[in-house]
Nucleic acid binder design. Structure first.
Lengths: 210, 210
DNA sequence: TATATTTACGAACGGTCGGTCGTTTTGTAG
DNA sequence: CTACAAAACGACCGACCGTTCGTAAATATA
């Protein structure tokens, strides 16, 4: 832990900028975002941003990292408090939807937005976003696999497909919420996964929410 | 049908521009799209575009309409050839995934891209996109409802949730395909809906693909 | 106090954006 | 051929973009 007031100030600024940029990125897009926009929203000068990131792209990469930290803190970590198995998979889905419902990010889901923005634009940013998506899906599959090996789900269950369904219902929720309303949307998203899980559970496991 | 060669030329140009703009919009985004980009790709002048649309926004709205026509022609209309009921719902899902697989649009799904781009940016474009989404979901729900009234699905089935699940699996497919590969992705998307439908079908109906 | 270093700023640059305007080209009609 | 209309163009505008640079303020070290 540094004591240097200059470095501390810099670190604080950096964090504030990333917070703001993350918010704005969910609204205007990670690329649609302009540096003036970020600077003005924070009351700092545009050129001052270049003291911390040498280019817009560098800032965008930092924003992705920041978004990942937020996702880990708000979705992944809380879910890890549930024991491995179906309970953990459900907790993941539930906390994810809860994060969307909390409206912490005004523009919905940063990663979904960024993915659809960059899915056809080769470059460093798309590669990084692809990595993030890969890590997330790998994690989801791992949790689904555990649910089988632990004995919560029937042996034949395909973890890949289960992860796919879980991801589907999650993404679609953040998509439909503005139009369909929170109650209906997240209700569907939760009930649909429960309906999907129930026939897969073994007789030894029956603690699923109603 | 007009015979005036000038109007015919104009109409042809307009169609060519919309085709090109639709392609580019799926790559750069409906807003990220620039008029110079469109003009250059077609070998026409930028100012010439203003002879057909009085502003960029007018062109963007026309592109949305064009995308809807394409979607209707490629997904909705073919599916309507299947009889009302589960078969039609499945045909809808299947043709939609087939449209994604065909790679007609290089950037995946226009409507998904545009939705995530504008979901937090109030204005005419977002309103129009919301209308399109509403129409699509209403149609999906109608088809799901028919599947119940026609007797293919059990009476208690919730058409809203069924439509939600179908939409989920479709959207997620276009999202995962670049990373996971077509075979696995669309395989999951198809199998997952079949798995979801099977326990809902009545005994009188059992023609679902394997 | 003198000297570095980090942070932040204002002014300016080239480039691209959406948009305007007057003109030329292309085609129709009398 | 003349008169007219639609389509398309080239030149240009102000605004905003990301970026650079020289400088000033804040904070450390000696």
């Amino acid at each position: 832990m540094t004591q240097d007031g200059r470095l501390i100030r810099g670190e604080r600024t950096r964090a504030a900028v990333l917070d703001q940029a993350l918010l704005l990125a969910t609204v205007s897009g990670l690329d649609g975002l302009s540096l003036s926009q970020v600077a003005d929203a924070l009351g700092v000068s545009k050129s001052g941003l270049f003291a911390h990131w040498r280019s817009k792209e560098a800032l965008q990469l930092a924003v992705i990292g920041h978004a990942r930290e937020q996702w880990t803190a708000r979705v992944v970590r809380p879910a890890l408090e549930s024991p491995p198995g179906v309970r953990r998979l459900w907790a993941l889905h539930d906390h994810r939807l809860g994060f969307y419902e909390s409206r912490v990010l005004p523009g919905g889901c940063f990663f979904a937005n960024a993915h659809f923005e960059f899915n056809a634009r080769p470059g460093v940013l798309r590669d990084r976003l692809a990595t993030e998506q890969h890590d997330w899906m790998a994690f989801l599959i791992r949790v689904a696999t555990e649910a089988v090996t632990v004995g919560d789900l029937r042996p034949g269950t395909d973890p890949g497909e289960l992860a796919y369904v879980t991801e589907s219902l999650g993404v679609c929720a953040v998509m439909q919420a503005p139009l369909l309303g929170d109650a209906l949307t997240f209700g569907h998203a939760r009930r649909a996964l429960l309906d999907h899980l129930r026939p897969l559970t073994t007789t030894s496991f029956s603690e699923l929410p109603t």
